[in-house]
Measured scan of single mutants.
Amino acid sequence: HRQALGERLYPRVQAMQPAFASKITGMLLELSPAQLLLLLASEDSLRARVDEAMELII
């Protein structure tokens, strides 16, 4: 289940942060499945989480 969510998330994360897409997707997969579904449904929520992840990385 998580694998399938990751496969759906990755291209969207890659479009926002290509250099760190794998790392960010891995970080996002730590969230609950319900939270992941919310990110897939909301571009704004996904962008906010990706921005948060980038702050942790750099």
Rank of each mutant, 00 (worst) to 15 (best):
L9C: 02
H1I: 14
V50F: 01
I24P: 00
I57L: 10
E30Y: 09
S45P: 02
S32T: 12
S22C: 09
L36A: 02
H1S: 10
A53T: 09
M54C: 04
A34G: 08
S45C: 06
A34D: 08
Q35F: 10
E52L: 08
A53Y: 14
S32V: 06
Y10S: 03
A19C: 08
A15I: 08
L31H: 05
A15E: 11
I57S: 02
F20V: 03
F20M: 07
I24N: 00
G6S: 13
Q14K: 12
Q35A: 13
I58Y: 11
E55K: 13
G6L: 15
P33Y: 13
D51M: 12
G26Q: 15
M54Q: 03
L29V: 05
L28R: 00
Q17K: 09
K23W: 09
E43Q: 11
S32I: 05
A41S: 13
S42R: 07
R2H: 13
Q3G: 08
V13C: 03
F20D: 04
D44T: 12
A48E: 09
R49L: 11
F20I: 03
L29D: 00
A4H: 09
S22I: 13
L40G: 01
L28W: 01
D44K: 11
A53L: 14
H1Q: 13
R2P: 13
Q35S: 08
A4S: 12
R12C: 05
E55Y: 14
L28V: 01
Q35E: 07
S42H: 10
L36Y: 02
P18Q: 04
M27R: 03
E55W: 14
I24T: 00
Q35L: 10
Q17W: 11
S32G: 07
D51H: 08
L31I: 08
L37F: 11
L9F: 04
D44W: 04
L56H: 07
E30R: 14
L9I: 09
L31W: 03
K23E: 11
L9N: 00
S45G: 07
G26D: 14
K23D: 07
M16C: 04
S32N: 09
P33L: 11
E52N: 06
A4N: 08
A4E: 15
L9R: 01
D44M: 09
E52Y: 09
Q17Y: 15
L46W: 02
L36S: 01
R2C: 09
L38Q: 11
D44V: 13
E43G: 05
L5K: 02
K23G: 04
R49M: 10
S42Q: 07
R2G: 10
Q3L: 05
A41N: 13
G26L: 15
P11A: 15
A15V: 08
V50E: 02
Q14S: 09
G6Q: 13
S32F: 05
L39A: 07
R12W: 09
E52R: 08
R2L: 15
S32H: 08
G26N: 14
V50G: 00
P18E: 06
L38W: 13
G6R: 14
A21I: 01
F20T: 02
L40T: 03
